[in-house]
């Protein structure tokens, strides 16, 4: 196994935040006596990431994803703990380190809104000391990958959200960073644009072996891009492994969908012979059964040989439902 590019040990971050009560009289009181509260945003997390990996960082709002990302990029000092990214301590923010990482945020823009993206790119290339010929080559490659020839000459202000995100990605990748931090890159984009960006990221990762840490609210992003996920909840890392493993662990059952040529008279009665099968309300002629993973072959065989089946499919439960369940229960 190669040397990990990211190593995180006992990383912890505690914030002090002001409390503010509603109402006019409370805001007047707040003038004289502000109240504060300590909030543990990230508590004692540990992990390593190999070069070229794409890792999804997931968790509900306020779980500590962004704080973790900010510490790794060097924007925040941790309260304690250590981290090494590409052999640098991120929060020293040495120029050599900053040269090798990139942060792209879905809700914040690194572009100058009054000028066309091409000009912003040129300035960035000067800041990152990208040689002219290399800059041109990288730019051409990114522009054709993202299919954004037409946007380059319009002021950023006049671009749509999706077009702007393409620009943010180009701005973040112009200097060939080794590590890319993506914070909610598909926030607010339509489904087609989300897919477009996913395809791009996948392609780019394969061609350039860039290491990516991605946070997203859209599970589709994570399941399309990341084989490995880390799940953060209440500041703690509660799962780190393959996405499939997480799903298996959480949802030890599959969904069997059935359609019949003629409606069977006593389907529910028939199903009582299996102890691990649960009948879910049918949707427009589709009958759905929840079946324990290990019983799937036996159950499907019985159904096929005894009932007038027109169509049968076996599916994993939707990952969103699985994740919702964890967010609610707070543990894996």
């Amino acid at each position: 196994m190669a040397e990990p590019i990211i190593t995180v040990k006992n990383l912890t971050k505690v914030y002090r935040v002001p409390e503010r009560a509603p109402g006019l009289s409370a805001s007047i009181r707040g003038l004289f006596k502000p109240k504060f509260q300590d909030v543990e945003a990230v508590t004692d997390i540990n992990f390593t990431i190999q070069p070229g990996e794409m890792v999804g960082l997931i968790g509900p709002n306020g779980a500590g994803k962004t704080t973790t990302l900010k510490m790794l990029s060097g924007l925040l000092y941790p309260t304690h703990g250590e981290a090494k990214v590409a052999d640098f301590t991120p929060w020293d923010r040495e120029p050599e380190y900053l040269q090798r990482i990139s942060m792209v945020m879905g809700n914040r823009s690194a572009m100058n809104w009054d000028i066309p993206p091409l000009d912003s790119f040129r300035v960035l290339s000067k800041i990152y000391k990208v040689p002219q010929d290399q800059y041109q080559r990288t730019l051409d490659e990114l522009i054709s990958l993202l299919d954004m020839e037409a946007l380059l000459k319009k002021p950023v202000r006049n671009l749509s959200l999706g077009e702007r995100m393409k620009c943010e990605l180009v701005a973040g990748l112009l200097y060939h960073p080794d590590v890319l931090f993506l914070d909610e890159p598909t926030l607010g984009l339509d489904v087609a644009m989300q897919r477009r960006l996913r395809i791009f990221l996948k392609q780019y990762n394969q061609q350039h072996q860039v290491t990516v840490i991605l946070t997203s609210h859209y599970m589709a992003d994570v399941s399309a891009l990341c084989e490995r996920v880390m799940l953060i909840h209440h500041g703690g890392l509660i799962f780190d492994g393959a996405l499939q493993e997480l799903a298996d662990k959480l949802a030890p059952f599959k969904l069997v969908k059935l359609q019949f040529t003629t409606p069977p008279s006593n389907l529910e009665g028939f199903l009582t012979q299996f102890s691990t099968v649960e009948y879910l309300p049918s949707e427009n002629g589709h009958h759905i059964l929840r079946v324990a993973r290990s019983d799937v072959p036996k159950v499907t065989a019985e159904i096929l040989s005894n009932l007038p089946v027109a169509d049968l499919s076996v599916e994993d439960p939707p990952i969103e439902a699985v994740i919702d369940q964890i967010y609610e229960e707070g543990k894996v």
């Binding site: 924007l75 900053l98 942060m103 945020m105």
Partner: peptide, 18 residues
């Protein structure tokens, strides 16, 4: 104010100059 100072911090150039 807007929170975009993060990008400035991440540029590999002297911040005061920038």
């Amino acid at each position: 104010w807007q929170g975009t100072f993060d990008f400035t911090l991440l540029r590999p150039v002297d911040k005061q100059f920038l």
